[in-house]
Write a protein that binds this DNA or RNA. Structure first.
Lengths: 213, 213
DNA sequence: CAAAATATTGACTGGTCGGTCAGTCATGAT
DNA sequence: ATCATGACTGACCGACCAGTCAATATTTTG
């Protein structure tokens, strides 16, 4: 039996993995810029620096490539979100701060914010993707929030139990941020950090009027 | 000079107007179902019961048709929103109720909710549409909320001034509702009326635990 | 080093679809 | 009744593009 098939991360495999990354990156850019239908595989290949045929070494077809891109983009965020969930005794205020910071740093400030728009855009036509996002991100995130909010409410940390019943309320301002950035920022600037901070104040009941300018 | 060109809403004009409505409706359905790029003009024409060439009697090209659809869909909502703005002394609680009701009845409960998703999806590629939505809906709505919230805060109706500074916070739950319906409803039901009511409670500080049901 | 194995290429194909326009037909004027 | 108007049609065209595969290049093996 081919026992120790270990180190042979041969020149082949290394190059292959690098090419896979290049393709996913290129595909990300093009899909984000054009949307699924209008994205051309020729453009993706060119940007990745490979021939079109090479794309088919890593994905079955265009749709499969799109799904890989969408899934690949959430993975790191998913990991960090899980870390938050593993601290069940975190005070609610800290959880809020953590989630908003995670959102700002790893989503809003990166190209990933475009993936959210893309999932919203194409999700209805790709049930597989919508289902994955619901199962892995949404449902997981909602559980964390709902449980933490229920605990916080019981402890008197927050006045309302609305968040425990509708944890979806937490993502509202994040969606607003992503969408505003993508569509309306050219016409009117929105301070998303401020927006999130203000929302945090509303939820916690800590209405500090004179915030950072 | 053709002075009184009044009643002659001749059979021609009538039929034409009916055809225009049919085309806009058909285009709406197809665009919503397929997205801009994937929507086929042949399908739109077939559904509208006209020949493809007829589409070009009412619109310059596919893009123009899409813009007409997107603009046509908001008009009635816009009118109702304006009505709300014309009552500057409305108590804040009533304004909230009014806006949420408007959203539920005229957007969420109709096919218009899909238009929002479509604008989010394609808006980045149609600056004209994004700009129109910002100018006519967003900016107008935000002004109404900001002013009302500032007044309400001054009067002590609401605890926080966050809404006056970030009126965008109000639309968060509506976006959540629209997107949840479109993407995740098959996997997990969300009671959007309840969601909006809960948010209203958070904003007003009226935390009624035992709500309906 | 040569042969075998594998990875990559890009010209090509088959099908699709936005847009056109010469011809047809219903309407309203004379 | 006849004609002039212009709304409407749908076959057609040319551009475009996802996906294929025979040919070529690269790496590994012996």
């Amino acid at each position: 039996m081919t026992a120790t098939v270990e180190q042979p991360l041969s020149k082949r495999r290394q190059a292959s993995e690098a090419r896979r990354r290049a393709i996913l990156n290129a595909a990300f850019e093009i899909f984000v810029a054009e949307g699924f239908s209008a994205a051309r595989l020729d453009d993706i290949a060119k940007r990745a620096g490979v021939a079109k045929g090479t794309l088919y070494l890593f994905s079955k077809d265009k749709e499969d490539l799109f799904e890989q891109v969408a899934l690949d983009a959430v993975t790191p965020v998913l990991q960090r979100l899980t870390l938050l969930a593993e601290q069940p005794d975190l005070p609610f205020a800290a959880l809020l701060t953590g989630m908003f910071a995670l959102f700002e740093r790893d989503v809003l400030a990166t190209r990933r914010r475009e993936i959210i728009r893309l999932v919203i855009a194409e999700g209805a036509r790709f049930p597989g993707i919508a289902e994955f996002y619901h199962r892995e991100m949404i449902s997981r995130g909602m559980s964390i929030v709902a449980e933490a909010a229920a605990r916080a409410h019981a402890r008197g940390e927050i006045r309302t139990d609305a968040l425990a019943r509708f944890p979806q309320l937490l993502v509202g301002p994040m969606l607003v941020g992503v969408i505003w950035r993508a569509l309306f920022e050219p016409y009117e600037h929105l301070d998303i950090s401020g927006l999130l901070a203000a929302y945090r104040d509303i939820l916690l009941g800590t209405d500090s009027k004179a915030k950072t300018q």
